[in-house]
């Protein structure tokens, strides 16, 4: 007796659900969908019927075949994935294995600090200016209100250069710039006020090297000139800079000082980062750290640059980049920056 299609479908579904692995699934295929499978045979048996009957019954069988085939495909997929997962079981890896080191380059810490400082000043409208490291005596001293017999020149221990052939029309002496301040005059000679610039760069001092001193190091000069640029403006600007740079609230204090190219001149101190102003060993129990020298540009500097000091005023400052880097990365010896040890340099 021929089973009804519904019975066949139910039997097939049941058999399919019962299949536990791919092998059993193979058996299912043979029984229902293989060459001699029930559904196949059923289709074959149609040939014996009349065209009309064939059409009537064929549709039902084909629908059933399609359904079973789809279910079979789904089940196959399901069992395959189960098998992959179960095969992988017991196959482990050691999560304690050390990671393989990435080959990577490093920007020098002084480059990184210099860039960060530049970014902050740029955001306050300052343009970046660069200048020569071999400088004339005039730009390094005379133009900064230090004529040759000025005792204050002693504040900058200078490397002087031998000159092979001095060209006839110049009696200039050359030296390695002792500060970035020559850029003040160089820039003002070429540009009209108002202006805001910073000039980062390498400077040189003839002095004994130790953990805090180097014969070459980096400075960042700042200059802001306008009609009413004042000491109060300087305080606001420099406090903003240090707060951004160190990402914390800090206080600034100014103390009297002397530089020939500024008047008034002051030292700039900042809240000690170690104790936050509570006074500790690092800041000599003052609660403050010395950061840099600054002041209001001296009228003679304006004259040297060709400005009329009656019309313009502003501040200038010069901060040490190395010192900023030492504070930021807690490096205790400036010499490491110029040393050759890559175990230090590749940490940044």
């Amino acid at each position: 007796m021929v089973k009804s299609l519904i019975t066949l479908e139910n039997e097939a579904k049941k058999a399919l659900n019962g299949a536990k692995n791919l092998k059993e699934l193979d058996g299912f295929f043979r029984v229902y969908l293989g060459k001699k499978g029930e559904i196949t045979l059923l289709l074959k048996s149609l040939t014996k019927l009349t065209a009309q009957e064939r059409k009537k019954q064929g549709k039902g069988i084909n629908v059933l075949k399609g359904k079973i085939q789809q279910l079979f495909k789904d089940k196959t997929q399901e069992l395959k994935q189960e098998e992959i997962s179960s095969n992988a079981k017991g196959d482990w890896l050691d999560i304690s294995i050390p990671g393989i080191k990435i080959k990577q380059g490093n920007l020098h810490p002084l480059t990184q600090v210099q860039r960060r400082a530049q970014d902050i000043f740029r955001s306050m409208g300052f343009a970046v200016v660069k200048g020569p490291e071999v400088e004339s005596e005039w730009y390094n001293f005379d133009a900064l209100n230090m004529p040759p017999d000025h005792p204050a020149r002693e504040m900058w221990d200078t490397f002087w250069l031998k000159q092979k052939k001095r060209s006839i029309n110049t009696k200039e002496n050359f030296l390695l710039r002792t500060h970035t301040s020559p850029l003040q005059v160089r820039y003002m000679q070429q540009h009209n006020p108002p202006l805001r610039i910073i000039a980062p760069g390498r400077v040189f001092r003839y002095e004994a090297t130790d953990a805090n001193h180097q014969i070459n190091f980096y400075q960042l000069e700042g200059l802001m000139i306008g009609k009413n640029v004042s000491v109060a403006n300087f305080r606001a600007m420099i406090q903003e800079f240090y707060e951004k740079f160190f990402s914390k609230k800090i206080a600034i204090r100014l103390r009297p000082s002397y530089f020939p190219f500024t008047e008034p001149s002051f030292e700039v101190d900042m809240t000690c980062l170690v104790c936050n102003g509570k006074k500790c060993k690092s800041c000599g129990h003052s609660g403050f750290m010395e950061m840099m020298g600054a002041g209001m540009v001296h009228p003679n500097v304006f004259r040297a640059a060709g400005y009329n000091p009656k019309n313009w005023q502003g501040f200038a400052f010069g901060m040490g980049i190395d010192r900023l880097a030492m504070m930021k990365y807690k490096v205790e010896d400036i010499r490491l920056f110029y040393g050759k040890d890559m175990r230090f340099l590749t940490q940044f």
Binding site: P194, M224, G226, K227, N228, V229, S230, V231, A232, N233, R235, A236, M237, Q239, E240, I252, L254
Partner: peptide
């Protein structure tokens, strides 16, 4: 001297 931002 209190900090004042430049107005220029």
């Amino acid at each position: 001297i209190n900090p004042i931002f430049a107005v220029s």
